[in-house]
């Protein structure tokens, strides 16, 4: 397992591109980064000129060895840190990074049981690392993703997830606006949706759920009601409601 480098490392913004109207992919070059497992996160620390510091956690979209990490940040309009990372951080600018962090919400190539990933909004980020790893190691473990979004325009990494070469199938779900001709009307994920769109308890899957706290709460409760044992559900709450 990949354990954190000591102390804070310096990341310099190497590449960036918009993911949606409110989100951006940012890739840092991080000297001393030991590589990371799929699903791990990093703490980002910003220091203002008067010495005030803010720390936030972000999942890592990239995985494996190497001195670069990719993050996917959604802008919360009133947020302290996310608007800066989405709108203001310029190529060559630096931030402090602590990580890679966490060993529980990770997927490792040697895992063989079926995997169900369930994402709400920006909660897809750690799953991008998992699907990339799944493809790159030619894993034979079944893996699929259920991705819940407000509208079709809110998808992070849609092209990558929809590629014919993707080894994990993505099922899309919309809570506010659906694409033309979509069979299900817009609405929150229900236990019924989870029953028809995710791996059932009989297949003994490991189910990972990630997104805003309210989303994770609702989904993990529904999964338990469908008969999944609590210890087979791993959660990553991003905060908020």
């Amino acid at each position: 397992m990949t354990t954190p480098a000591a102390g804070w490392l310096t990341g310099s913004l190497a590449r960036a591109h918009p993911l949606t109207a409110s989100a951006r992919s940012i890739t840092f070059t991080v000297p001393g980064w030991p590589g990371n497992d799929a699903g791990q996160h990093v703490d980002v620390r910003l220091t203002s000129s008067d010495g005030y510091q803010a720390v936030r956690s972000y999942s890592i979209a990239s995985a494996g060895p190497g001195g670069e990490i990719e993050l996917g940040i959604d802008r919360l309009p009133d947020g302290e840190v996310s608007p800066f990372l989405v709108d203001d951080l310029a190529l060559g600018d630096t931030v402090e990074l602590r990580g890679p962090l966490g060993g529980w919400f990770v997927w490792r190539p040697e895992q063989t049981q079926p995997v169900q990933l369930i994402a709400g909004g920006s909660g897809v980020v750690p799953f991008i690392a998992m699907t990339r790893t799944h493809a790159s190691v030619c894993s034979s473990a079944p893996m699929q993703l259920l991705y819940s979004l407000r509208t079709p325009n809110d998808a992070f990494f849609r092209d990558e997830l929809s590629q014919p070469s993707a080894t994990a199938r993505t099922t899309w779900h919309y809570t506010r606006t659906v694409p033309p001709g979509w069979s299900r009307s817009a609405g929150r994920l229900t236990a019924e949706d989870l029953k028809s769109k995710t791996l059932p308890p009989e297949q003994a899957p490991l189910t990972y759920v990630c997104g805003p706290t309210g989303f994770v709460e609702t989904v993990s409760r529904a999964l338990t009601s469908l008969g999944h044992a609590p210890d087979t559900i791993r959660t990553e709450r991003f905060g908020g409601t």
Binding site: P4, A6, H41, G102, W104, F105, R237
Partner: peptide, 24 residues
């Protein structure tokens, strides 16, 4: 009040513990 998962403790404890806390 909204909460997070124990995973988030990995950062603040990185220099306190020699072990990985989230899988302990």
């Amino acid at each position: 009040m909204d909460h997070l998962d124990g995973n988030v403790l990995a950062g603040p404890t990185a220099d306190l513990f020699l072990f990985e806390p989230t899988t302990t």
